[in-house]
Design a protein around this nucleic acid. Structure first.
Ligand SMILES: NC(=O)c1ccc[n+]([C@@H]2O[C@H](COP(=O)([O-])OP(=O)(O)OC[C@H]3O[C@@H](n4cnc5c(N)ncnc54)[C@H](O)[C@@H]3O)[C@@H](O)[C@H]2O)c1
Ligand SMILES: NC(=O)c1ccc[n+]([C@@H]2O[C@H](COP(=O)([O-])OP(=O)(O)OC[C@H]3O[C@@H](n4cnc5c(N)ncnc54)[C@H](O)[C@@H]3O)[C@@H](O)[C@H]2O)c1
Lengths: 211, 211
DNA sequence: ATGTTTTTGTTAATTATAGCACTATCTTAA
DNA sequence: TTAAGATAGTGCTATAATTAACAAAAACAT
């Protein structure tokens, strides 16, 4: 087992490769190559091979990769050979969209609990999951052994929620609130920041000429 | 005018710095330092200075940075000294959340038009913007000189929508559909992919031990 | 005044990432 | 059986990004 440091960019690409392979597989295609994958996702063939090489040898020289096999291998690498229990905190505009997103389940992410502070929302059902009051977060998350928390509350409440998620045993957090959160190093945190994404766009559109 | 290549990571951090400075400014603080900014956003002081150094000298040695000034400078660098006209395509679960997101306008992004293919949605109003049929996209986007398009349609429709946005003159696209899109090189494209984000988390939670 | 402290801007070193070129191995067909 | 073609895996090179170190400049205290 290698303790090699894997670039995050590699993981992101692996996720995209696996999605691409799902499409290719659906078309009934049996075998593919680093070149075809590269074309399909817009990177270089060398990059595809390099990314895979971190984890082993999955292809056959002169032939290529078996689509189903490679897909399964990548899913396994990403930790997707099992389902993950996910909790969603905050069922506002965004939380509601997330809670009904089917792309979740397809990849093995199962929303097992939903919380909100608003009494009007508590008790309502989203799909077959009931919205629970925030004071039950710790108990329920512990009970379900939920490993992933999604934060979709206002920025002002995000740190408090994150602290609760962590003390409830969550190991990874996906945060949509536009705020820098403090978490201990053993907790995995990723931020999805809409404004930041748009601002990278505007910077580039300016042709970097605006300043 | 430098033609220096700026790392994308730098732009992302600048966006975060500017948000942090907005908070600091709201607290009435006049002066700050690279160290304080670094603490506030979780990077190193050297990184902060390096990022800023790409664009000029904004501080005073021995003193630090004027909060308001630096904030304004960064906003200018990011192209946020003017408002941007944005069009949103697809008002499903996600599109609806995005259309009512206030964080947009705060940074100068104004949704000037919304489109959907569903006749039941066309004609409804979101805020004070009416949902228009998709066949008016080109005309309206051209009329408004809209520069940014947000794609929140199903994956199967995304490429088609992107093509229409581009032929309508949009220069930058933020895509939420989980699909690899083809755009000409002069078009700025960013993808926000929820599954990918979660999968980076699961990979890391596995401690890279799962494979 | 002058030296001390602070903190920036910048240069140098280190580390990380991507790209390329080459080698090994498999398939196929003569 | 062997040669030709294809394509994965790999080590090396080049590029990019981050970190660290240091010199320049401002403020402040003596
Ligand atoms: N709406 C979007 O498109 C969008 C896009 C990007 C980022 N965001 C961010 O995502 C977050 C949610 O956005 P939104 O538009 O859904 O906001 P919202 O106001 O519609 O929803 C927030 C929800 O969180 C709940 N809440 C508030 N405080 C809470 C607490 N302490 N504990 C539990 N629940 C609490 C509220 O009751 C509400 O249901 C915000 O931080 C926002 O900045 C939203
Ligand atoms: N819902 C989420 O939380 C979420 C999260 C991440 C990514 N996404 C992605 O964002 C996209 C939208 O997700 P959603 O949940 O809002 O889906 P949705 O089905 O609720 O909404 C899609 C909307 O697009 C419209 N549409 C369909 N085809 C169209 C076309 N050709 N032109 C214009 N409009 C068209 C539909 O009428 C509908 O209103 C999808 O690609 C989805 O995978 C969604």
């Amino acid at each position: 087992m290698k303790t090699l440091k894997i670039p995050e960019a590699t993981i992101i690409r692996l996720s995209v490769y696996s999605r691409h392979l799902t499409d290719v597989d659906r078309k009934g295609i049996i075998t593919t190559s680093s070149g075809e994958i590269a074309d399909g996702v817009g990177v270089s063939p060398a990059q595809v091979r390099k990314d895979l090489a971190y984890f082993g040898e999955f292809g056959t020289r002169g032939v290529g990769y078996n689509v189903k096999d490679l897909r399964q291998h990548i899913l396994r690498i990403l930790g997707l050979s099992v389902n993950w229990s996910v909790t969603l905190v905050g069922v506002g505009n965004l939380g509601l969209a997330l809670s009904s997103y089917k792309g979740f389940r397809e990849r093995g992410f199962v929303i097992t609990s939903i919380f909100d502070a608003d009494p009007k929302k508590v008790g309502t059902k989203i799909g077959n999951v009931e919205v629970l009051p925030i004071d039950q977060l710790e108990t329920v998350v512990k009970l379900n052994r939920t490993q992933i928390g999604i934060v979709a509350v206002p920025a002002a409440a995000a740190q408090e929620i994150v602290d609760q998620l962590i003390s409830a045993g969550v190991e990874a957090i996906l945060n949509f609130a536009p705020v820098v959160l403090n978490v201990p190093p053993e907790i995995e945190l990723r931020n999805v920041d809409l404004a930041v994404n748009l601002e990278v766009l505007t910077f580039n559109v300016c042709g970097q000429k605006c300043y």
